[in-house]
């Protein structure tokens, strides 16, 4: 780890100014991923701008019934928040399915969105990785990739996004607010993370100097039920092999509102738009669910050793839709 300077700005604008003025600086939230990567030599900031004490730790309902979540709200507080548990349970479930109690107490909402891949080659600076060093190559494609992407990957990168929270936020149509040197902008969570294409060093659309200040959940849709389900190698404290977040409402025996997102399959949370389009208005039968999910996963391009993820995602999604249908019927 290189030595670095440390700054603790008092305001968002001060933080953003500092970030813009120091290329190679990093914002420090909980640090659970950043400090880890600094120890590995993957991140080498010359300046850390500590944003963890900025007044961004609030959660308030919006006028239309949504929820504003400050960027420094800790994952455990977000998961435990009564409004979240009662109205956006998939988000709470996703958070609680990730990491450990200790890490959730430390990790922030903004930081969670900026988690970097756990691809073993990315984490090992003695090996090539296009995400770390563009053009150096991707050994994962031929190497160890059981846990890596089956959807949306490129010749240059087969990494997956490790976040559980982001998958739920993608399904919940959340937005991210960014403060940058050129002002404030809002981005859909589904547009926030990128596919790797030929520049996998960019995980997200965040611009230099931009700081995540809040995440906004739109109001829950009436009559909709939601869940997050994750499959993993260990019963707890393990990243997803595959996961699914789903929101469903049923009207007259047919799917009304539907929102479906996968985790663990791609470089970003994978919003299943193809499946959603097929499901909207469809009957709530296992067959209809299977057809829609299969249509979505037809785009999958598994690597040598990770084809099981397609089957796993399919099972998780169909299982989630069946369960939500049962629940929707009883609400």
């Amino acid at each position: 780890m290189k030595p670095f300077a440390y700054l603790r700005p008092a305001t968002v604008s001060e933080a953003v100014r500092a970030g813009a003025g120091h290329p190679g600086s990093r914002f420090l939230g909980g640090g659970t991923n950043l400090v880890d990567l600094m120890k590995l030599g993957v991140e080498t900031p010359g300046l850390l701008i500590d944003v963890s004490r900025l007044p961004l730790d609030g959660m308030t309902r919006t006028d239309d019934g949504g929820l504003r979540i400050g960027a420094t709200v800790r994952n455990s507080d977000l998961a435990a928040h009564p409004e979240v548990r009662n109205h956006w349970p998939a988000l709470s479930q996703a958070l609680l399915a990730g990491a450990s109690g200790q890490l959730r107490n430390t990790a922030t909402t903004g930081g969670n969105l900026l988690q970097r891949t756990r691809c073993p080659y990315f984490q090992d600076v003695s090996k090539p990785c296009n995400k770390r060093i563009p053009g150096s190559g991707c050994p994962a494609r031929e190497g160890t990739h059981r846990d890596l992407a089956v959807l949306g990957h490129s010749q240059d990168c087969v990494a997956t996004n490790p976040s559980d929270m982001a998958v739920a936020l993608a399904a919940l149509d959340a937005t991210v607010q960014l403060h940058g040197p050129e002002g404030v902008r809002t981005v859909q969570v589904t547009d926030f993370h990128r596919l790797p294409a030929d520049n996998p060093d960019q995980d997200t659309v965040i611009r230099p100097g931009e700081l995540i200040t809040e995440v906004v959940l739109p109001p829950p849709s009436a009559g909709a039920v939601s869940l997050y389900r994750k499959a993993r190698d260990r019963a707890s404290y393990a990243f997803a092999l595959a996961s699914v977040a789903a929101v469903l409402s049923v009207r007259d025996g047919r799917v009304d509102r539907i929102s479906l997102a996968f985790g663990g399959l791609a470089h970003r949370p994978w919003r299943a738009r193809v499946a959603e389009d097929l499901l909207r208005g469809a009957s709530t039968t296992g067959d209809a669910f299977a057809r829609a999910v299969d249509a979505e996963l037809a785009a999958a391009r598994p690597l040598r050793d990770n084809g099981f993820k397609v089957d796993l995602a399919r099972r998780l999604a169909i299982g989630a839709l069946v369960e939500l249908t049962t629940r929707a019927a009883s609400t």
Binding site: Q123, R234, S236
Partner: peptide, 15 residues
């Protein structure tokens, strides 16, 4: 490949 405790899965309490 599994050189750390995030990837080499020693059983956790929940297991």
């Amino acid at each position: 490949t599994e050189s750390d405790l995030a990837s080499y899965h020693v059983p956790s309490c929940a297991d």
